[in-house]
């Protein structure tokens, strides 16, 4: 399935990314190949995937949840120590209309 540049631009918007024209050209070609590769899951199962019965995500069990207790958390100054220019508040450039 060939993917159009418009679709790539739409996806990039969803993913909060953007591409220059030159990047978009290269990326669209690569992405076609990647989607063709992802598509092989549709060809590989004989009789389609309808025959596969899901037994549920067995990695996750909800039978053994811990009680919902309040536990100590890290101090906010420490958590916010990586914020650029943090001064008790988040500072960002004023949006230009």
């Amino acid at each position: 399935m060939a993917i159009s540049k418009t679709e790539i631009e739409k996806l990039a918007k969803l993913a909060r990314l953007s591409f220059s024209d030159e990047e978009l050209e290269r990326f669209t070609a690569e992405f076609d190949e990647i989607i063709a590769f992802a598509d092989t899951i549709n060809q590989s199962i004989e009789g389609g995937t309808d025959q596969i019965r899901s037994v549920g995500a067995r990695m996750v069990s909800f039978d053994d949840l811990r009680p919902d207790e309040v536990m100590p958390s890290l101090p906010s100054e420490k958590i916010l120590s990586n914020v650029e220019g943090y001064n008790g508040f988040f500072s960002l450039e004023r949006s230009k209309k």
Binding site: I8, L11, A12, L14, A15, L17, F27, E30, F31, I34, I35, A38
Partner: peptide, 13 residues
């Protein structure tokens, strides 16, 4: 990383 984020966004869209 961008390639994988894009593929992930695509298959979840």
């Amino acid at each position: 990383v961008k390639r994988r984020i894009m593929l992930g966004t695509y298959v979840l869209s």
